[in-house]
């Protein structure tokens, strides 16, 4: 397996955290992994994005320019990155905030009302985890168990009280996606 992803959204939507968590989980599952935060002028442009590569072989370029998978949490990020997705690629988007109209590319889309689901769970800040749940259900890239193990490592001790909520969000994203498969 070889996955090249871009995760993108607003600064503050937990984009970087989701990317790091996914990367860490890939490492725990003995894959080659790399993660790069958005680096350049777009850092100040209101959108945040990161490149994640998870692969069975050694990684060449850690920078993803034409992603196989795009996970996007807001409209500007969708508009910016959707046209870069490879033919045959996948876009998972937060349909609460995104009108997912594509200019007719050969890509698969999965609409997840992640902000709505997160609100229903009582915390809009776990939208990123709902999206991550949808991603792993759809692609089987890594397992839920390993993500939960990774959360313990990635979150500082004093944030461990948030693990159950994150787990709920991941599971909600997975459940929603299961119905769509």
């Amino acid at each position: 397996m070889h996955h090249e992803l871009i995760i993108a959204g607003f600064g503050g939507q937990g984009i970087m955290f989701a990317g790091q968590l996914l990367t860490y989980t890939g490492m725990m599952e003995d894959r080659h992994v790399s993660y790069i935060p958005s680096y350049g002028p777009e850092m100040r442009g209101g959108t945040a994005n990161c490149s994640v590569v998870i692969s069975e072989k050694e990684i060449g370029s850690p920078i993803v320019t034409d992603p196989g998978i795009l996970v996007t949490l807001n409209q500007p990020a969708f508009d910016k990155f959707a046209p870069t997705v490879k033919d045959g690629g996948l876009i998972i988007y937060n349909s609460t905030l995104i009108n997912g109209e594509l200019p007719g590319e050969d890509v698969e889309t999965l609409a997840v009302p992640a902000s709505k689901i997160a609100d229903e769970l009582g915390n809009p800040r776990i939208t990123n985890m709902v999206m991550l749940g949808a991603l792993i259900k759809k692609t089987q890239m890594v397992s839920l168990e390993t993500i939960l193990d990774s959360l313990e490592k990635v979150l500082p001790e004093h944030r461990h009280n948030l693990i159950p909520l994150n787990k709920q969000a991941l599971e909600a994203g997975m459940e929603y996606t299961e119905d769509k498969l």
């Binding site: 790091q20 490492m27 992994v33 790399s34 790069i36 850690p62 920078i63």
Partner: peptide, 10 residues
């Protein structure tokens, strides 16, 4: 360079 400085890998 800044790319290697900022990127994360195992």
């Amino acid at each position: 360079d800044g790319l290697l400085g900022q990127m994360m890998e195992p």
